[in-house]
Design a protein around this nucleic acid. Structure first.
Lengths: 198, 198
DNA sequence: GTACAGGTTCGACGGGTATCGAAGTATGGA
DNA sequence: TCCATACTTCGATACCCGTCGAACCTGTAC
């Protein structure tokens, strides 16, 4: 299970059980122990309980152990999400899927958001970025809740900021919506995203 | 036992058993397993079997694990060697004790010796050093056997080089011998050693 | 509400494994 | 030659721990 979690993503107890070739009860037993020992972080979201490595130090230690002795690979965890929705979709009122995760990664690595506990907030450093979106600067602080992406198992932006972001991207035609939840990234949107990622 | 070995020194099965608070049989059982798993290196010397961590990668992994969770310290391993002999003494025909280990460390970190398996040899880079000792350069290659120091549990030089080294240090009066195995480092010797260690 | 899926808790079982006593094998010293 | 010491092997025991079946809890969907 730890090996499966080594990709940094979050997985449910059932998925990890399948990856390790054990029953969900057994997995639950071990996951509970590892959580209490501080190796894993638990994230309750609806009826799902996502587990992920508690931090980069745990990942480093695991890698270190693996460098000594190769362990058998866990069974691959397959996503049940259709590829189209996986790429980009709406999650209630914000962007989800691989696109949502890309945005989250780009903005956090730029320092445009800070997290205080479970709450995220857009920083003053993001003023230009907000202007680009057409969001007036005096709306700061814009709050956000990190939401674990169902298909990607990484975070994307939800909350106020997530809503404003989707609205702006739609109005600039950086993404196109449809009647389904699917989103399509336009060429203009790709250029914009690439600029944020630099 | 692994915690006790984390100082990089080599210890016997009995010592490690005492450090871990288990019987020698149990220690032997585990040490055998860890040796076969490639975690420990075994060094037979007479009737003693010295165990040490197989390499710096093992030490790094242990440190990494310890950084996640503090483990109880093992019982201290006490040396039964009198302090005087521990500082500097002869071991048959070469220098042993803390002094021998210091010399070994200084010369190896300078690249003046290379090891091919269990055999050590003095390199050409040590020409000036050999001249200083009064050993003619054409005696190269001077071979050496690393000998695990009984009191320090680290290596010192034995073999041809160990013998030549002791003779030279005695004739230059860098160390003084006596009727016992004890050696005394003179002031000139201290200066010389400090120069090698730079 | 009812059905269902994700998840946990409980209890019991079975195998593994750490442990030590006793006995055996080497090595070194008296 | 004899003994002490270092260490291992063997065998037996006790217990820990991983495992799963069954039952229970808790959200989501219709």
């Amino acid at each position: 299970m730890l090996l499966a979690l080594l990709d940094g993503k979050a997985y449910t107890a059932n998925e990890l059980a399948r990856a390790a070739g054990i029953t969900p009860q057994t997995a639950s037993f071990h996951l509970d122990k590892m959580s209490k020992a501080g190796l894993l972080a638990l994230l309750r979201q609806g009826r799902y309980r996502y587990f992920r490595l508690a931090g980069p130090d745990v990942a480093r230690t695991l890698e270190s152990i693996l460098s000594l002795q190769h362990a058998p690979s866990p069974r691959q965890i397959v996503s049940s999400c259709p590829a189209r929705l996986r790429a980009a979709r709406t999650c209630f009122d914000h962007v989800a899927g691989a696109l949502g995760v890309r945005i989250y990664r780009a903005l956090t690595s730029r320092g445009w958001t800070t997290h205080a506990g479970a709450q995220f907030a857009v920083t003053a450093a993001a003023a230009d970025f907000l202007g680009e979106l057409g969001i007036p600067g005096d709306t700061l602080p814009v709050k956000s809740t990190p939401c674990l992406d169902w298909s990607e198992r990484e975070f994307h932006f939800a909350g106020d900021f997530g809503r404003l972001l989707l609205q702006a991207m739609l109005s600039h035609r950086w993404v196109l919506g449809g009647k389904s939840r699917q989103l399509t990234l336009t060429e203009a949107g790709q250029r914009r995203l690439a600029a944020w990622e630099i």
